[in-house]
Design a protein around this nucleic acid. Structure first.
Length: 475
RNA sequence: GGUCCCAUCGUCUAAUGGUUAGGACAUCACCCUUUCACGGUGGUAAUAUGGGUUCGAAUCCCGUUGGGAUCACCA
């Protein structure tokens, strides 16, 4: 049987990291076995529907490369792939389930049910409609009385099923409540739509958050009542913000699009989240999607929650940025140059010095702001113990450097470096005693992308001399 | 509260009865050096806890503690 997995998000807005990781695992499980990855939109709750949310889902999945084989936009043999368009299918199966004895019509209001319940004291709703005869119930339905279809659970004892991650799960049937399957608006709840769709779409592996572990027996009952086989279950632990809280968009935690906007590369994000809850069993940490497709296995999925660590993602993103061909890095960096540079500089040279020093693209403006203008800085900045540099030294060497630079006719990094090195020799000082102060004078910053001569090249001769003069005046 | 699940360095994790408990990020030190980074070398740092079982336990069993999930006409 061909492996078929599905990503079934509800279009409620952002694509958060936990969701994306689930999609990734589903994709990888399918592709590791040459199977199909299906996209299905679960929009049975009209109240939560957010305009444009499906577009974000499409865009995100495309961006990371987890392309789907069947879905609302491309169709397939098991459509439609949007639940609101499958309304009639659910209704048909719901009524069938009633006939089969796995569900019953219920005429109670939500308030009636809520009143009876008490979670603290563990009192469940006992549905009086459960005992109505099918004829009577049908008659009331025919009369036009509002109703829902509720699951009927008559079993007792322990329900058992196997989960690929958590192993064997046992839950008492008494713990299960008879939830609504078909709402009064005629649309199904997740509890029902999922089972019907997964069966009809021939899904072989259901991957979802571990919050579904305890309700899975209810779904298995539905499968049983229909005489269907249930899929394999792969419940995955949540991605956490900290030890206590899940990553959630409500708290404004980073979503995929937020991270991309900050300058994280989709490839790096995917690589990082693949490793949040899964490991290859080797020391390798950098993986392309294609590599993951080859080696992913559910056996190596972890049971405990994983905290999302932006610091490690940042490191990994730096790895990806450094590995980029220079032209590609340049293309990614250019928009930031356009945004914050008005001075004309050799942008390709800038990219060259910048690339090994950028971890997140969004840091670029901060790293290059000195090119526009030097912010006020204290002369203490000239102090560096190792370089044997301080304001006094700077005063002398800067003046000397200025003379040499003013005479320079070839304005390249190599040429300038040779000249200043020669100057250091003539003066009998360390290279650093010239270069360190020069770098400070030109940038006003303790850290810069590149050394003194590289910055001089970026700034150009006139501006370099200009800045040395300004610095000298302040010493 | 009932039920279910989880528990190794600060973080992600490896070790499926026998390891000086390994790797990565972060952190610290040193080296390299033209700053910062990159790179290199090394260090600090963990089996929540109490009992069993066993020649031997991070690993198996039980209790405790801590955390999470669930108990919707949300998914």
């Amino acid at each position: 049987m061909k492996t078929r997995t599905r990503f079934a998000p509800s279009p409620t807005g952002y694509m958060h990291i936990g969701n994306l990781r689930t999609a990734l695992y589903e994709y990888l499980i399918a592709k590791a076995q040459g199977g199909d990855f299906i996209l299905r939109i679960e929009d049975t709750d009209q109240k939560r529907y957010v305009e444009g949310a499906t577009d974000i889902i499409y865009a995100t999945l495309k961006r990371v490369g987890t392309n789907w084989d069947e879905g609302p936009d491309i169709g397939g043999n098991y459509g439609p792939y949007i639940q609101s368009e499958r309304r009639n299918i659910y209704a048909e199966y719901a009524h069938k389930l009633v006939e089969l004895g796995g569900a019953h019509y219920c005429f109670c209001s939500k308030e009636d049910a809520d009143e009876q319940k008490d979670e603290e004291q563990n009192i469940k709703f006992q549905d009086p409609c459960k005992h109505l005869s099918l004829e009577e119930a049908k008659a009331r339905v025919a009369k036009g009385e509002p109703y829902v279809i509720r699951q009927t659970i008559n079993k007792s004892g322990k329900s058992k099923y196997h989960d690929e991650v958590y192993g064997d799960i046992e839950i008492d049937y008494d713990e299960l409540d008879e939830g609504v399957l078909l709402k009064s608006d005629g649309l199904p709840t997740y509890n029902f739509a999922n089972v019907v769709d997964d069966h009809l779409m021939e899904i072989t592996h259901v991957v979802r958050g571990n919050e579904y572990i305890s309700s899975t027996p209810k779904y298995n009952l539905i499968y049983e009542d229909f005489g269907w086989e249930h899929p394999q279950y792969v419940h995955v632990p949540p991605v956490m913000k900290d030890a206590q809280h899940k990553l959630s968009k409500r708290n404004g935690d980073a979503s995929f699009q937020d991270l991309v906007a900050k300058g994280y590369l989709p490839e790096a994000i995917i690589n990082y989240i693949a490793l949040l809850g899964w490991n290859p069993g080797t020391d390798q940490e950098i993986f392309s999607l294609d590599e993951l497709k080859k080696i992913f296995s559910v056996e190596r999925l972890n049971k405990s929650p994983a905290i999302f660590d932006i610091t490690k993602l940042t490191w990994m993103n730096g790895c990806y940025i450094r590995a980029l061909p220079i032209e590609e890095f340049h293309k990614l960096a250019e928009p930031y140059y356009k945004e914050c540079l008005s001075r004309k500089v050799d942008e390709e040279f800038l990219s060259k010095v910048l690339q090994p020093r950028v971890e997140v693209l969004g840091d670029i403006p901060n790293q290059i702001d000195f090119i526009e203008q030097v912010k006020d800085f204290s002369n203490d900045l000239y102090f560096n113990k190792k370089m044997k540099s301080d304001a006094e030294v700077a005063k002398k060497t800067l003046a000397e450097a200025k003379t040499v630079l003013a005479e320079a006719d070839v304005w390249t990094n190599e040429a300038l470096f040779e000249k200043l090195k020669a100057l250091a020799e003539t003066l009998g000082v360390k290279n650093g005693q010239i270069l360190y102060p020069l770098r400070i004078a030109l940038s006003g910053k303790e850290t810069t992308p590149g050394g003194a001569t590289e910055i001089a090249v970026i700034l150009g001769k006139d501006e370099t001399i200009n800045r040395i003069n300004q610095a000298l005046a302040r010493l």
